[in-house]
Amino acid sequence: MLVRFALTTFALVGATAALAHDFWLQPVRWRLDPQRRAGLTLQVGHGSYRQRSPISASRILAFYGVTPDGRRVDLRKQLHPGATADDATVSFGRPGTYVLALETDNRAESHLPAIRFNDYLKVEGLTPAIELRARNGRTDTDGAENYSRHAKAIVQVGPVDPRGQVQITRPLGLSLEIVPESSPLTRPGGGTLPVRIFYRGRLLPGALVKLTNLDHDAEPIEVHRTDARGRAIFAMPGRGAWLLNVIWTRPRPRTSLTDFETDFSSLSFGVSE
């Protein structure tokens, strides 16, 4: 029985790893020219399932940019999800490193059969949810969630100023947020990239964080679980487009129509050496 379950689960994990779908901001170029408008798409899924997100503008609660001097610029008016060429256009006048942030509401729902829901929880490292379902005797029941997206992207205008990276290493206050301790733009390919995960303002231990090369994104290249201090350490990525992502969930009240409220968070960036 254990062997059969393990084999089936392993096979499903192998097949469904690409099905637990991440969401991120994908600029047309990671390095922008000053004053020139550049397109950006909202992407979801990996490998053969990768596509532009079908999300509607009404579900996007916030879309803003954080400038090198720490100001927030509201970019909601630049959003046009579903347009032919892109989902948003941005332009920044001054050289520097900018962080774009987008948050959605939690009205998206997912309803999965038990075996698939359990597999998704396992693949995404949502161990507390697995344990909660087991404690409540609900492991064999279907799983329903509300989920929301919290995406950040780093774009560079002009040359990289190593002294102007603080907006990358400072939390913006997203519900679930990936915050690097150092900028991946200043030391590409060298050393390590430690990141901290914040969940509702507090450091989150035990979360599974993945690093994916967006040019070959069928599978992540590195996966780490945050330690007791909410920290995970990756090898500093080299040249290319990269995505860090993490998922976390919490149970909803018994009176809710769904069982869990889940947050998907991502940080995308491009490195040129």
Binding site: A11, G14, A15, T16
Partner: peptide, 22 residues
């Protein structure tokens, strides 16, 4: 094609074989 047979034919074929009761 695509992601391969994992979760498909191979899993199905293995299912009765991997459980001694089946």
């Amino acid at each position: 094609t695509g992601t391969g047979l994992a979760g498909g034919f191979v899993s199905g074929f293995a299912h009765p074989l991997s459980g001694p009761d089946h």
